[in-house]
Amino acid sequence: MHEFFMEIVDKYNYWLYIILMMIGLYAMIVKNNLIKKLVGMNIFQTAIILFYISIGYKEDATLPIIVNAHGVHSPEELAINTAEYINPLPHVLMLTAIVVSVATLGVALALSVKVYQQYKTLEEDEIRMRIRESSL
């Protein structure tokens, strides 16, 4: 039991992102309101962004800017210990992913405005009812 518990605490970042992702997925599947679904979608995407951010982090490490490098020109003195710096690549990737998720959210919101103009509601069951009425 203790070991199991330690396993979870050790890798808490992964557990956190899985829980967040499941919350988002749950909202996308279960919720009836389109805006709530969109919120779920955004939580889902943010969970993955958090996952990426957490894998670049190192304990007791600093920003990836070489310390005291000013005025040093010989390559030997510039040799760096990678354990001292966090990995910047996942963070840079996530800048792009954030842009993507914002754009997706924008498109989805614009579409839900269109849906609202058409059916005067954002509840999915009501929309489905309208569609059935109009096809009869």
């Binding site: 997925l25 996308m28 389109l34 679904k37 979608m41 889902f44 995407q45 993955i48 996952f51 990426y52 894998i55 996942p90 992913a97 997706t104 498109v107 989805a108 579409l111 839900s112 269109k114 849906v115 058409q118 929309i127 569609i131």
Partner: peptide, 23 residues
Amino acid sequence: PLASLNYVFIGVIGASFFLLGTG
């Protein structure tokens, strides 16, 4: 618009899964 919105929901899940696998 509704068909497209449903595509957005499912498409985002697909792309996010791909991103996660890449991670």
